[in-house]
């Protein structure tokens, strides 16, 4: 039933969102401050009381975690509600579906948009981290591998945006968002190894954490920014790719079902 999205038609969705954000670009601009504030508050403020973690300064430990978080924020948090509202309340997609655009075009377009927004946050975050490390110190980018952190972050954004789109199709009421944020996004943010190594937890809890996509995003990006790259990075990448692909297929099917009756 569901067809392969067309890149040309999907880009129309991105274009549409660009027009919307022409009026409200400040929102894009401000989204990246949140991880930055956390970097300053937790990485430096609280980090000043911490010392090294696994041989690297605490701020260098937290920075890639927050980079992954900003991918998630950009791709999920900020777009989540908006897509749902268009799906169920404004009937925007119904209007678009009266044209040659198809459901996969719309879905993939929204995903591209979310991915782009997450990538902008990520690029801005990397730049700030690099700049702060060079001027004020301490350095948070410890290796040349970090050159791959941006493509890595874009990849993570793609995965999170597919997850966000998928999750949106399950939301029935506005209050479900609070539940999703409280039960999924917030715990992922706090327990994915963003702020402390998950080895602090007992084994079963670690296994649980290893299910979380953000954990793999954090680990992947941390390997790249600290230079502690090993074969394990392939596992993280493969897991993320799998989750992203499944989420995308499920999202498309569910969107198709709720839009075509």
């Amino acid at each position: 039933m569901s067809a392969i999205p067309s890149l040309r038609r999907s880009s129309r969705m991105v274009q549409r969102n660009l027009i919307v954000y022409k009026h409200t670009w400040r929102v894009i601009f401000t989204g990246f401050f949140e991880p930055l504030f956390y970097l300053l508050g937790i990485g430096f403020g609280l980090g000043g009381m911490v010392g090294d973690v696994g041989g690297i300064p605490y701020s260098a430990f937290v920075a890639p975690g927050l980079l992954a978080t900003s991918c998630m924020n950009g791709a999920i948090t900020d777009g989540f509600f908006n897509i749902w509202f268009k799906l169920h309340h404004q009937k925007t997609y119904d209007g678009i579906l009266a044209t040659p655009m198809r459901v996969p075009d719309i879905g993939f377009g929204e995903m591209l948009w979310a991915m782009g927004r997450g990538s902008i946050y990520a690029a801005a975050f990397i730049s700030v981290v690099l700049l702060m490390g060079e001027t004020a110190g301490p350095r948070m980018i410890l290796s040349r591998w970090a050159i791959l952190a941006l493509p890595g972050a874009v990849f993570a954004c793609a995965v999170f945006s597919a997850m966000g789109l998928c999750a949106t199709t399950f939301v029935r009421k506005v209050h479900d968002f609070d539940i999703a944020m409280g039960l999924v996004v917030m715990p992922m943010f706090l327990f994915s190894g963003t702020f402390f190594p998950i080895t602090q937890f007992p084994k079963p809890a670690q296994w649980l954490i290893q299910v979380l996509p953000l954990h793999h995003g954090v680990e992947m990006l941390r390997q790249l920014t600290t230079g502690a790259v090993d074969v394990g990075i392939l596992v993280h990448i493969a897991y993320l790719a799998l989750i992203g692909a499944v989420a995308f297929v499920v999202a498309m099917q569910r969107m198709e079902r709720s839009l075509i009756k």
């Binding site: 009026h23 925007t92 119904d94 209007g95």
Partner: peptide, 14 residues
């Protein structure tokens, strides 16, 4: 085709 649905589904954000 041109479609005018029963309930307006204009794009409210633009």
């Amino acid at each position: 085709l041109g479609v005018v649905p029963q309930q307006d589904n204009l794009d409210a954000e633009i």
